[in-house]
Design a protein around this nucleic acid. Sequence first.
DNA 1: CTGAAAGCGCTTACAG
DNA 2: CTGAAAGCGCTTACAG
Lengths: 354, 354
Amino acid sequence: MAAHNLTIHCERHMNVNVHTMAIKRTTIKDVARAAGFSVQTVSRALNNKDYIQKDTRSRILAEVERLHYRPSRVAQSFVTRRTYSVGLRLGDLGNPFFADVLLGVQAEAAKSDYTILLNNTNPEQYSFPASLSLMSSQGVDGLIIFMTNATEAELVDFVERNEIPVVVVNEVIDQRYICPVWVDTGKAASTAVGYLLDHGRTAVGMLANINYTFARSKRVRGYRNALESRGLPVREDWILGANGTLEDGFLATKKLLSGHPEINALFTFNDLMAVGAIRACWEMGRRIPADCAIMGFDNLPIASVTIPSLSTVGYDRYDLGRRAMERLHAMIENPGERLDPVELDSNLVIREST
Amino acid sequence: MAAHNLTIHCERHMNVNVHTMAIKRTTIKDVARAAGFSVQTVSRALNNKDYIQKDTRSRILAEVERLHYRPSRVAQSFVTRRTYSVGLRLGDLGNPFFADVLLGVQAEAAKSDYTILLNNTNPEQYSFPASLSLMSSQGVDGLIIFMTNATEAELVDFVERNEIPVVVVNEVIDQRYICPVWVDTGKAASTAVGYLLDHGRTAVGMLANINYTFARSKRVRGYRNALESRGLPVREDWILGANGTLEDGFLATKKLLSGHPEINALFTFNDLMAVGAIRACWEMGRRIPADCAIMGFDNLPIASVTIPSLSTVGYDRYDLGRRAMERLHAMIENPGERLDPVELDSNLVIREST
DNA sequence: CTGAAAGCGCTTACAG
DNA sequence: CTGAAAGCGCTTACAG
């Protein structure tokens, strides 16, 4: 053995290279040697593979225990080409919406010991394609993505290049390697606006979100549908775009209501904007719902403690995440197979603001 | 070449095994062959290593470009023992507090092309040690953690076993491989409660958080300090523990104020609880701040749009995350070296609720 | 049921 | 400045 490879055994069964003092990890070889079997027999014992004598397995596992051996995931990934990690690209985490989605993804991922690589939607940091590339270069087995600051072409292009399974949330894209898990937010928006119209509101404005191209256009379409199906005109100047944040909801509401005091109801892209809108109305002296009704979207926890509490559109975010991960896992296990999209329901939650 | 290894070249320079139809990735070998150099020269060109002829490099890089070659991160990790990923364990993401922290971590991580493995704090899914184990078995180069549902002993034990660099946020632990990045939340709590006491409040209650052992005890200590340093008694029954959520803030406030109507100010563990408290006061007909002042903690975006807006303790969450990642990176680059903890400032933000 | 051999795709010393 | 060899720690056919 060359001097530079000299290692000594110390307590707690760690191999230490005396020159670098770096810890040399316990490998399958150490276990094999200690147990008196070959490495592939150890591998079999560890992976519950095919035929192996009971006695052999238990002797090996005892040795694994004694040496505190844990297989190197990296080495395993290297040979199996599976990393047991999935990439997750969410929208703005300042919106607690994504917290529940993440919880669902994680719960499902935990079942199969999958790990989550997160790449947040910060357009200043990573463009959509750059974000996907970064995650896939890390070797993730698949991706779950929200289409924020993204175009369909970018996604399709990426998937064709990389042939990696992708679950796309709340967007319906019909393409190999892509499986949608979604809620019909357009229909939900239409129902929500319809509710306002059917309950005496004659001038319904809308606050849209400029960051979610798809989601926005669907919700705006729902808004239009509700009006048109009732024979009402669509007033383009009653629709205002902004970022989907509390502050932008606040600012946009002030702008919209001061420009159009005739508006007596507001449909907002999400609850966060609605919460900002509540404060804006309060500052402008407009009573909710008497002078102006407010309808949010998401049914966040905050919706039940605002003053007044918020009417909104809800759906099971946790389940959305869970099903997304479930689908992705199925796609990973059955490469090439095409799976049906998953559609989840939504529901209208009426509280004090309408 | 054996039949089962037969590959063909197709357009877009992909190697396809004709039997499995699986894509064989372009490797460094393909580049070497195409460029007419050895693999290690290609490696040199790619990694900007030592001496290599300019001409050689550019010819190789051209070939890399042409073949769309991208080195396998997994293979690199396997040999270098660096994965360029860090594990991140946050608290409840339903609290937008963590969104900003994550943004900061990510911004800093992006600089050195680090990737983030997320393991959320869901005690039903992973215990603290299980969470750390899962991430480290994935081969992360280091960890950034919040001490939620965790004990110091568990952390120290883990670190001694694994000798992996850890940045612990908002907790001061003096130990090899652990570097604290923190805000003195105890002092901040004391300042906040002191403000209430110095502005005419005679009966200040507190809503604590039962999930954050350390953080809670520090903030409770700050609360006590403020009272004691002014010669005031500490009323244990004015301190109520709950989960740090909107709903629990709401419920706990109702309970505390109905049991102790003499309370005329409330210091809450975080802003989320404070927002719940505002609604609770409103339902109980207690005017804020006239009948009961409310002081939060975190200075979330929501604090400026509640009615009334919320006085609170603020600090730079983004920077907290950024510095944490910065420190972790330094620890990874200088193994074994002990780095000084990083302490950040906090400030009191007075709005309408006090 | 078990073992010997090859190989995954890179980098790291070491020669030249 | 460039290349031949070894090796990282596993699993996957293939023999026996």
